[in-house]
Amino acid sequence: MNNDLLIARVAGERIAMAAVEVQSVIELGAIVPVPRAPGIIAGLATQRSRTLTVIDVALALDLPARPHPARFAVVVEIEGVGYALAVDAVEHVLPGEGEVQPVKMKLSPGWAHSAVGMIDTAVGTVMLVDLTRLVGIEPQQKAA
């Protein structure tokens, strides 16, 4: 089984995503904001005739806000919807080494929501995130 990981950098931290779930990496152009949408939705971007929902990954993980918007995005499809996960940089695609280790420390709510566990790679130990939970419908949206 392919255990390649895509390593991205967000607000100074490295995160890992399962590479099989990634469709492409794009450079973000203009983002059309979605008024009144939850904060993690940075807006909409297009990839040819496809509209992608841009997720502010840093915000989704409770990382400090960046002074400038993210330049790159990892394109994934979750439940038939295309998302662009805005990150500062995409660094590597590497195989994971060994098993995913459960997280033993107490994480901030953003991390705790999306983290699957820690995994060793050639560039060090990184946090593997679950993409569905990363973009998933946040509890904040239950309000009518």
Partner: peptide, 19 residues
Amino acid sequence: IRPVAPQVIATGLYVGVAQ
């Protein structure tokens, strides 16, 4: 009109997106 992400639908303000 194409479907838009469920998080966007959840705002109750949009039905979809067009290019």
